[in-house]
Design a protein around this nucleic acid. Structure first.
Length: 437
RNA sequence: GGGGCGGUAAUUCAGUUGAUAGAAUGCCGGACUGUCGAUCCGGAUGUCGCGGGUUUGAGUCCCGUCCGCCCCGCCA
């Protein structure tokens, strides 16, 4: 008999079907017993009445079972559908000598009173909770839509090495790796490789891959290993082309979620932003707003602090109703050496950040494509050209004007679903103290 | 790197001036023919992080130690 998924049971009313899954919850009353069965599609109620099968001792929560029964309609059943049990078979029972799960797998998320620390310590079990798992359904759809949109825009997906000989940007600390007799590092960004691939003739490339930062941060928005949604594109006129691409990309991603993750979004009270254009302000303007509207003087700071990011988003939301805002024209000093300076002001760069509900989810910009200028800038930043010989090859041989960006996958998931900690948006987060599970 | 806080049942927590270790949820048993956070009745479960000290008596006070969490900076 072919297996039917819990969510599809309603299509088989009056017919006998085979269900397979985990025991989600058992409710035994005097003469009627309910067993909620969970599989990858959801939960369906199965029922046994007087004279039928009594639930045996070895059928406990989280046992894996197969149930054969007839699908019936009943207004009293959740969703109006239930399966009247004819036969069941235990595929995997749980020894009574084992401890019960520290995580309540069948609890709704708003009733689950468990610290994040415990949820993560028991990740293999907490991921069984459908509400917790919903986060990763949403994340998977975000990444699917990222791919789909870019493929349609003529991008090619690439995979670049995560074991590298040199750091790319400075600033961020690198994780050292012993690579046989040499010292290597985990890649903090695919930046150089993306640019090389633009120059290689692909023109437009993207990558979904891990990035590693050995910074000793320990916050609700940082991971030491995160999934970076990267893209890089050639033949642009300015960073505005990159921002236009991201605006189109995000529209597509959000619309995709609206149609594929309705239940998951409702669960987390997540509102899909709908926008025509994403407003833009320069960093200088943002600082001016903070000073005049919120009496927050950042002085000579080269970036917004987290509070500043929150306030700017609040301000933009009040003025325009938008939850997203591009911050542009960051100082040269604050950006990596490959960032294109503004033509009218070499102190500023053609780069941007994207803030979403008070937190940065993207950094991007136009890159320097002229060899001489890049070399000069490298020296200004105290970097040795010899260390980047493979990178510079590209620029010696004709490189189109280009730019790109990176979106933090866990960051955008967190912001969309209103999660309070980025670790919730990572299956197995790597942070300052956690390398297991 | 800087600052703050905590460790008591499987989980989330309470524990007063130092005097028999508590609640809720979960778990186990019983009752109930429609549950859906079921309800009702009963039950089991503790190295109070660890080590030392003060005291007739320490979860509580003192010293040491280990572990963890949160906030800030940095960034995606």
């Amino acid at each position: 008999m072919k297996r039917v998924l819990a969510a599809d049971a309603g299509q088989y009313i009056g017919k006998e079907i085979l269900l397979q899954g985990w025991v989600h919850r058992i409710r035994q009353l005097g003469q009627v017993s309910f067993l909620l069965l969970r599989d990858r599609s959801g939960v369906v109620q199965t029922v046994v009445e007087t004279g039928g099968w009594d639930i045996p001792d070895d059928i406990t929560n989280e046992a894996v079972i197969a149930i054969r029964g007839e699908v019936g309609e009943d207004k009293r059943a959740p969703g109006g559908i239930e399966v009247r049990v004819k036969e069941r078979e235990a595929l995997s029972v749980i020894s009574p000598s084992l401890e019960v799960s520290p995580i309540e797998i069948n609890k709704k998320i708003d009733l689950l009173k468990t610290n994040l620390e415990t949820v993560l310590a028991f990740r293999p079990l907490s991921l069984r909770n459908p509400d917790i798992r919903a986060i990763f359904k949403v994340q998977a759809e975000i990444i699917w839509a990222f791919r789909e949109f870019l493929l349609k825009e003529g991008f090619t997906e690439i995979q670049t090495p995560k074991i590298v000989a040199t750091g790319t940007e400075g600033g961020s600390q690198l994780f050292p790796v012993q690579y046989f007799e040499r010292q290597a590092y985990l890649a903090q960004s695919p930046q150089f490789y993306k640019q090389i691939m633009v120059g290689s003739g692909f023109e437009r490339v993207f990558e979904v891959g891990h990035a590693y930062r050995a910074e000793e941060h320990n916050t609700a928005r940082h991971l030491n290993e995160y999934v970076s949604l990267d893209l890089e594109m050639g033949f642009i006129e300015s960073e505005q082309d990159v921002m236009r691409m991201e605006t189109g990309l995000l529209k597509f991603v959000f619309e995709h979620l609206r149609s594929t993750c309705e239940a998951e979004l409702r669960l987390y009270k997540a509102e899909i932003p709908s926008f025509k254009e994403i407003p833009q302000i320069t960093l200088a303007e943002a600082k001016e707003i903070l000073k005049s509207q919120y009496k927050k003087d950042l002085g000579g700071a080269k970036d917004l602090d987290p509070e500043g990011e929150r306030l700017i988003c609040r301000h933009i939301s009040k003025e325009t109703g938008e939850e997203l805002v591009y911050i542009t024209a960051y100082p040269t000093e604050k950006r990596p050496f490959y960032t294109m300076p503004c033509s009218d002001n070499p102190e500023l760069t053609k780069s941007f950040d994207l803030l979403y509900k008070g937190e940065e989810i993207t950094t991007g910009g136009q890159r320097i494509h002229e060899y001489d200028r890049l070399l000069k800038n490298m020296k200004n930043f105290g970097l040795r050209a010899d260390d980047f010989e493979f990178y510079l090859q590209t620029f010696k041989q004709g490189m189109p004007p280009h730019g790109g960006l990176a979106i933090g996958a866990e960051r955008i998931t967190k912001q969309l679903l209103n999660l309070s900690n980025i670790r919730e948006a990572s299956l197995f987060p790597r942070d300052r103290t956690r390398i297991s599970p």
